[in-house]
Structure formats: C-alpha cells, structure tokens
Design a protein around this nucleic acid. Sequence first.
DNA 1: CATCGCCTGTATAACGTTATAGAGCCGCGC
DNA 2: GCGCGGCTCTATAACGTTATACAGGCGATG
Lengths: 338, 338
Amino acid sequence: MGVNLKDIAQRAGVSLATVSNVVNGYRPVGERTRLRVQQAIDELGYSPNLGARHLRRGRTGLIALAIPELNNPYFAELAEIAIAEAAGLGYTLVMENTAADRGAELALLDGSRRHIIDGLILSPVRIGREEVLARTAHTPLVLIGEGVYDVPHDHIAIDNVAASHAAIQHLVAIGRRRTAFIGATRGGERQSAHLRVRGYREALTAAGLPYRSRLVAHTDAFGRLDGKRAMRDLLALGDPPDAVFGYNDLVAVGALRALAEAGLRVPEDVAVIGIDDIEEGRFSTPTLTTIAPDKREIGRLAVRRLVARIEGAEVAAPLTVQTPFRLIRRESTGTPVG
Amino acid sequence: MGVNLKDIAQRAGVSLATVSNVVNGYRPVGERTRLRVQQAIDELGYSPNLGARHLRRGRTGLIALAIPELNNPYFAELAEIAIAEAAGLGYTLVMENTAADRGAELALLDGSRRHIIDGLILSPVRIGREEVLARTAHTPLVLIGEGVYDVPHDHIAIDNVAASHAAIQHLVAIGRRRTAFIGATRGGERQSAHLRVRGYREALTAAGLPYRSRLVAHTDAFGRLDGKRAMRDLLALGDPPDAVFGYNDLVAVGALRALAEAGLRVPEDVAVIGIDDIEEGRFSTPTLTTIAPDKREIGRLAVRRLVARIEGAEVAAPLTVQTPFRLIRRESTGTPVG
DNA sequence: CATCGCCTGTATAACGTTATAGAGCCGCGC
DNA sequence: GCGCGGCTCTATAACGTTATACAGGCGATG
C-alpha cells in the first residue's frame, strides 16, 4: 500500500538499516547520507508503519482510559485532558467504557486487549483490591478515583473524606442543620461513595450536629435521574432536609430539578452542593455550588505516571497522589460573600 | 512475553498453521485435532498478538471517531453508541478530538495516523469539499454532520433545514412572532449553522413572519457560554425577541441562563428551543424543548458503513443518509398539550 | 486398477520494522 | 609495514501472525 522503508532505501541508495537510523536516531548517520535519506522521505511522503514498528518493539503506543461512563461530563472533561497529554507524549489514548460493569472492568484488567495496549488507566467501580491483585497481565496500571487501595500500582485521587468535610462545613457555615446526602451505595467499604458518606458523617459530628441515617439516600448509579428520584423521596419525609450534599454534580443537578418540581426555593428552602465542578453547574438555574477537583492535574498525572512506567521506571515504588480541590460557591448555597 | 502460536503448536503437537486455523477458522480443521488445540489454548491461556495479526492482515482493527469537542454531551452520547457498535463488530474505536481546529482536521484526514487506523469517521467543522477531495490517504472515510457535500464518501446527517423548519413551526404554533436564532457563523455556505439559519428563515417566511437579521446572533463556538452571551446581547436590543431557537441544546442552555439572570420568565416572556436532545435539557429548569436527532441511528450507521467499506465494499456507491428527527416538547416552550 | 478429487495437515514466505553482528575504510602507533 | 580502534554503513535475523503452495491418505469414479 503505502511507501515503506525499502522504497526510501532504494531511492536514497542506502540500506534499510540506515533509513531506520535516520528516522529514529538509534545510531548516528553521516551528515551527507542523512540529508539524502531525508530528502527521499520528504519526496515520497513516508511515514512509518506503526503496526510493524510496534510488533518489533513490543509496544503499540496505545494506552487505554477506562471510565464507568462516557456520558458523565466529569469523565468527558477528564478524558479530553488525558487525550491531549497522551498525544504530547507520543501515545494514542483509547477510551474504554466499562459502564460501571464488573465484568467489563475485569475483562480490561486482564483481557484480550492486553496485546494491543501498553498500559491502562482505570477508574474502578465494581472491583476491589483482590481483583486487582489477582491480575496476571504485566502491563502498567494506574488507578484513578477511589475504591481500591494497598495495591502495587500508582493511584491518583482526591481526598474524598476531606472534600466531604469541606462541603458540610460550608453548609453548616450558612446555617443548615439538617443536611441530607444523596448517592450512598450498599457495601464497598472503601468505595468513594462510602468515603464521602464518612466525611459527611464526621463533619456533622464535628459541628455538633446529629447524623440521621434517614437523611442518607442510597442510589443505584450516580446520574441526574438518580439524584432526582432520591431528592423526591427525601422531600416525602415528615421533616425534609434544609440542605443536600450530592455524591457528584450530576446527582446534585437531579436534586435541583426535583426541588424545582416540588416548588421549593434553592437555596432559601433547601441548599444544594455537589462535587466535580462540571460546566453544567455553572449554567444551571440556580448555579451549583461544588467541590472542584483539579481535573487537569489528575488527567495529566495519570498519563504521565503510566507512560513513565511503560518506558521503564519499574524501579520506582508505586505512588499514591492526592490531588487538591477547592470549594466554589455559587447560587445553590447562597450568593458568594467574597 | 506472552504465550504465542508456537507454544500452542508444540503443546498440541501440530503445526503453526493448524493452530491459526483453529483460532480464526480460515480453513477447516478435523474435529479431534481442533479439540486438542483448543485444550492447549485454554491451558496456556493464549490470546493472539493483535499487532502481529494486523501487520500480516494489513489492518489494525482500530477505527477513529473524530469530533470537534468531547465535552459536548451530544458528541459524548454519540461516541458511547459508536464505541459499543464498533466493539460488537470486532473493532476498537479511538476518539480523536479535533477541538474544531482546522489543522487537526487536516492532520487526521491525511496524517501519520493513517497506518494505525483502518478507517475514520469525521465530523468536519473547519474544512470543506476541497480539502476532503485533496486527501491522498486510501482508508475509508465516513462523514457525519453537515458541512461537506458532493464528495465520494458515505455521509450521515439529519436534514438541518427541515429540523429548523420544525422548530420554528412549533414556536409559531405557540404564538411567537419575534423568534431569534443563536449560533450563526460567518462564511461556510454549507455548514450546518448556515443550513439551520436557512431553515429558520424559510420557515419564518412560510409563516408570513418577517426575517430580521438583527435577531440572528453570531457566535464563535457552540457552547453554553456562547449562548449566554448572545442571549444577553439580544436582550439589550430595543425590542427583544419573544422566542429563541438555539443552534444546539448547549447554546439554548446558555440562553436559558441569561434569561434567568435577566429575571425573565421562560416560556412566558421568552420561549426557548434547541437541537440535540442532550440529557441536560431534560433536567434543566425549565426543561428544554428540543429537536431530537436519532443519535443511536447516526452512531450505529456511521460505524457500520465504515466497517463495510473496510471489509471490502468498495464497489457500492457512496451513500448519503438523512436520519430522522422529532420534536420533543418540554417546559421551555410551554407544557406539552398531549 | 489407475486416476481424480477431497480432506487434513504441514512447511514456509511474506507483512515492515528494529537491533545485532559484522564489513570496509581510514589514520595512528609500534 | 602491520595490526588496531573508531567511524559508517550493510546484511540479516528476529517479532507473531496469516495465506499460499504443497504433500499424503483415502474413498469414489471411470
């Protein structure tokens, strides 16, 4: 099909090996021949066949980013950053959608893709420590988000407990005394949902407020619809909450909608706060107060750690990084003071 | 590294070729040997090295979906569908973000990725007919969305003019007489923005309403912020519109926000309609009336056409498909009647 | 009974690249 | 005058797979 090394070699009157050396500088080439080869390359419009290169090198130049839902703007924004970072390092990022499915996560960890991918960035949802430890694939793995700990892999996440503290402290500061949480899950001791509930509980206690399990709404997933339904249920309680802390912005947006349909005012009747700082929250009515993780940092760091491992930094010990976050005050908890 | 064909062949006591035939059924294999080989495969946990396979076959099994912004929920939803469809056909889809950049679109059309990708689905924004015709790469190309016509490639899009008609007719039906359009662009005769403006204009004329160029707001991009700014400008006019038709839902959401900040009621003061039916519009306050394209159909069709071409349907003439759409009435144009 | 064709299975040459071993040439020191 | 090391470049063997050409066995056909 296309132009290959041999064509260039013939055109320039040199050997295959010399052309290869010109292309990727593995060994030095004399100035005159290099120029001749370069000219042939330009004239014929050669670009290396990556498949063949990777067969020979044993690497494909592909890394995968596996996330539970592409539809979630948080992950879409993260993916956009990661794709750019990977491209800058000479890698192509392919997105894998696990759809929060256990089988899909397991298949990625150790599946048939292993030959096609040099490394994997995974945001685990349904698998835990054991599954990660049981993995036999030898390609580097970087974990993002919470859920799996104490495994020999790099791990990047925000401090969920601290983030929840910040959210609750803010609600307490604006005078709320009955704050609900939407987005708890059953089981999963170390899942991020669990950690966020823990932070919620600890912060309430620290503020001298009671923890009421009725105000903790469980959901199957973390989408807008889940938030809306849960909020509706909370409003049906005898004594509904005066504030809601959503597992993420999507859930919080759903809560906003349920409140609007119920004819309640935000933040006067119920204040709402989420986590993720998705763009949608900057344009909703009311705009959404949120805990903003440093998506840029997470995306770039994950890719860079992975590439470092792929390119041979096996020696370094697995790194666990907690990226910073900040509170962004918007209308859903009252007009910012500052 | 991993287990390869040779290992299996030795274990089962057969030749390489036989194992290969068992794996991909290119030629029939006797029942007894097939079983023995299969057993060896299972025992050793063999999975084919895709790089090598693709080098031999001349195909990589990768197709690319190039879209102008991953952040746009419309494209994220489309991508999710396309990824699933590609996986079902044995292909891996890699996402390419052109960021609505001309250079990026050109690079994709004819760039260094050509060896790594079997085919490309492109949503062009900044390039036109000439650039597509000038392309030298020989891999199949499927275009989605509008902007490029009369090129020898499959093309899938909704009928933008008709969609705009439907939107305007709806606004007229609910009694609006001064409808603005947000999201026009300069130049680009056949760009979708241009087509949507044309439909807007034609439908107004058909309804016996005047077309006022002051009510057509131009934007640089099609995001929430663009919609918000444009709406603000429209409201500053001496006689502001009583309805707004957004280039897409994102722009419409931005308009909703500007209206809320201006203290205007939707739909009483200003009705709003968009195109895309993104989930966000089902949860915004008010919920957003929209023209819903059949995303599932577009995503699946694009992938299937591309794969058909890759697998040798060069004979068939390029297909241009217009996928259906429907109007979804929500609060932003008044409570649905039906 | 020889021949033809089918059915299984094998040996082997690609695919396009990179890394290794080595060949030719030149100048320098003993 | 001969060997030795440094510098370029070349020849070639992989990487793991698939497709082609071919070989042997066996029943059916003339």
